[in-house]
Simulated scan of single mutants.
Amino acid sequence: MTNDMREALLGDGADAESGSAEVVRLESVRKVYGGGKNAVVALDGVSVGLRKGSFTAVMGPSGSGKSTFLQCAAGLDRPTSGAVVLDGVRLASLGENRLTRLRRERIGFVFQSFNLLPALTVRDNVGLPLRLAGRRPDRAAVEEVLERVGLGGRLRSRPGELSGGQQQRVAIARALITRPAVIFGDEPTGALDTATAREVLALLREAVEGAGQTVVMVTHDPVAAAHADRVLFLADGRVDGEILRPSVERVAERMTRLGAAGANGANR
């Protein structure tokens, strides 16, 4: 994002930070749901940076804070305290309208459930983020990104005519069309069979290596996580280490230890 684009997005008084190699940074982020005796601490002082052009998997036992991490990092939820900086923009400085605009223009999302509109063609589903941002989709750009995900021949198809793997490819193309600063994936292979999941992960890997995109993926699957450059582990709302250049075996072993530690803590 250029300085002019940031100024146009933020307006007066907002806090923009440039020059960092990190596209996402969480600074002492704490997220608490509820209050009093019913308060639940989902994130407890998380500080971490995610580099541009990297593929990061976020893992942890159930209730570790993975989903809350993604929601806060992507500007879908606001932290109780701490700060999130995304593409040089401090999110706390944005009102809801500007935050919505930033999500549309600078963030791509890929979900487990695809979230395609059944009445729209593949081409129109991919172009939808541009229309929501008030921009007319460039036909050539839409067709090019669909070629990249292997669906150049299905422009006029509707989601119901596609397999689950093909629908997820459309979702990835939709996430890529705005050339976002970062793509967030929430269990993007969770509804797919093993072979199709491998193909989808290869597409995300290609987006990082071939196009310099940044991907942050929440997953419970060690095989999926092994496609990343880095696996970040959460436990009880805190960062509990990481693995660089992960293998399936190392990730699975770490998850087993985290699960055992959680079980022991619950039994005390």
Rank of each mutant, 00 (worst) to 15 (best):
D77M: 03
T2R: 08
R245G: 12
L120K: 07
A260W: 11
L203E: 03
R51S: 11
L120C: 02
N264K: 14
G45N: 09
F233M: 05
E17H: 13
L99W: 10
R254K: 14
S18H: 00
V85M: 02
M217H: 06
L234I: 08
A73M: 05
L120R: 12
G190M: 09
A16Q: 03
I172Q: 14
I183G: 11
R103Y: 11
G153L: 00
L117D: 00
R174L: 07
G13H: 01
P188K: 08
E209I: 01
K52E: 12
A173K: 13
A57V: 03
S67I: 13
A83M: 04
S62T: 13
R268M: 06
R148E: 14
S54K: 05
G88R: 05
G190S: 12
L117G: 00
A261E: 15
G34K: 03
Q166R: 11
F55V: 09
P79A: 05
E161Q: 15
T56Q: 01
N115F: 10
V29R: 01
I172R: 12
A74G: 15
V29S: 04
P61F: 08
A175S: 14
P118G: 09
G134I: 01
L151S: 02
S93N: 07
L128W: 02
D44M: 03
V84Q: 02
M1Y: 01
D124G: 02
P188F: 09
V32A: 05
G210Q: 14
R136N: 07
T196A: 11
A261F: 01
R101M: 04
Y33R: 05
P246E: 10
R30L: 11
M5K: 14
L102D: 07
R78E: 11
L192R: 11
Q166K: 12
V126G: 10
L130Y: 04
Y33C: 05
Q166F: 10
V208G: 06
D44F: 03
D221F: 08
N115R: 10
T100V: 09
R169K: 06
A224M: 13
H227Y: 15
V32H: 05
A226R: 03
V110L: 05
A228S: 15
G60L: 04
L43E: 05
N264Q: 14
G34E: 06
L76A: 03
A191V: 07
L234W: 06
R169Q: 12
A252D: 14
T256N: 04
F69E: 12
E161D: 11
G134A: 00
V142K: 03
A226N: 13
R104F: 00
F55A: 08
H220K: 12
D236A: 15
V40E: 09
T219W: 10
M59A: 04
D4R: 07
G36W: 02
R78L: 06
K52A: 14
A235K: 14
R158D: 00
V142F: 09
L258P: 09
I183E: 04
Q167K: 14
A74W: 10
L116D: 03
G150A: 06
A197P: 09
S163N: 06
G95S: 07
